[in-house]
Design a binder for these strands. Structure first.
Lengths: 181, 181
DNA sequence: CTGACATATATCAACCCTATATAGGTGGGC
DNA sequence: GCCCACCTATATAGGGTTGATATATGTCAG
């Protein structure tokens, strides 16, 4: 899924600036299953604009830098629908946290505990953000389904970490492969 | 987490070739939380070799191309342990599937159903692979913990998809925003 | 009144992924 | 028997993405 398609997807939900698109992937409705950076968003918006798939208008703001608000065009809408026809690549989870923890026996138990606590807090915070979104019954069916999946998966992750934290710490504390803090 | 650290992580578990490292991220014990490609593995192995963090030896094979088996050196081991001290980046899920499904109301219900079925099958298959790994009690504590987390999360995903498939299809079938197949 | 953080756009180097090349073995279908 | 698809195995080029940085201004806490 390239940056252009991702931007079109956000813009289908309504007018937005580059900064707002970034937020949609950072804390908004897309945050739990895709991400992008300014380095790909701004070039993508320029390309989409040149191809006539979106149109931009400048929005002067009080006590804020100007915004460039982009809207999807009918041509852009059909380009998106057509892009949705591709076979989706396999789902991918990327977690430095789990990579590090898979070598828990080489880490000080205190650090392992701290890492797990941090991650539980992170998942719980994300869950609150997803659940609090009061829009439950106004959201289109697809978005609601996807949001529910995010909640289910994040809850499973947080629950697992809470349930197995003590066990892991106990096991690595016993072991002799401990390294110095 | 850069490719070099990921390779060191695999090699800490034992001697391996570039191809085998790829497999560790594709279907092996790292598959559910990180991935790499040949395009990053081979240059990483060359760089690690030049830095003295790993050593390579050629392994002639019967009726197969030669392998280059790499082993981690003591220097490499401490470089890895030291790399594990960084603060892990936030966990990230990347799913074209969920991105597409979030626009389910613009897709033919038949395709939505097919996509979900495919994804359930994919998750169930991955689960079987993770669970069948009979090594449960011989694996180090960290690896077992991480494996359990993968199973918990994948099971939650598959269960959610199964539980809500019918509901989503019903909702988009009713809706008027249907597009032609 | 300073430092941290938010809004807002933009770019660049470093890195990573995808696709492709090479080369031979294995196994299924017709 | 032959072809096609797929597995083992290494390698690279090209294109795209990430992360850091630059710029400019406003807010808010200590």
């Amino acid at each position: 899924m390239d940056a252009k398609t991702l931007c079109l997807g956000v813009l289908l939900r309504g007018e937005a600036s580059g900064y707002e698109i970034k937020k949609a992937f950072e804390e908004g409705p897309f945050s739990h299953f895709h991400q992008t950076s300014f380095g790909s968003i701004y070039p993508a918006l320029n390309a989409l604009s040149a191809e006539g798939l979106i149109t931009g208008r400048a929005q002067a703001q009080d006590k804020r830098p100007d915004k460039k608000l982009y809207s999807i065009t009918p041509k852009g809408r059909s380009a998106l629908i057509s892009a949705l026809k591709i076979e989706p690549a396999p789902d991918v989870m990327r977690s430095d946290f789990l990579f590090i923890l898979s070598f828990a026996q080489f880490l000080p138990p205190r650090r392992v505990g701290h890492l797990i606590d941090q991650r539980i807090a992170w998942y719980r915070e994300a869950l609150e953000r997803m659940e609090s979104c009061a829009c439950t019954n106004t959201v289109p069916a697809g978005a609601a389904f996807v949001r529910g999946m995010g909640i289910a998966v994040y809850r499973a992750a947080a629950d697992y970490l809470e349930a197995h934290r003590a066990e892991l710490i106990a096991e690595i504390s016993e072991s002799a492969t401990l390294v110095a803090e």
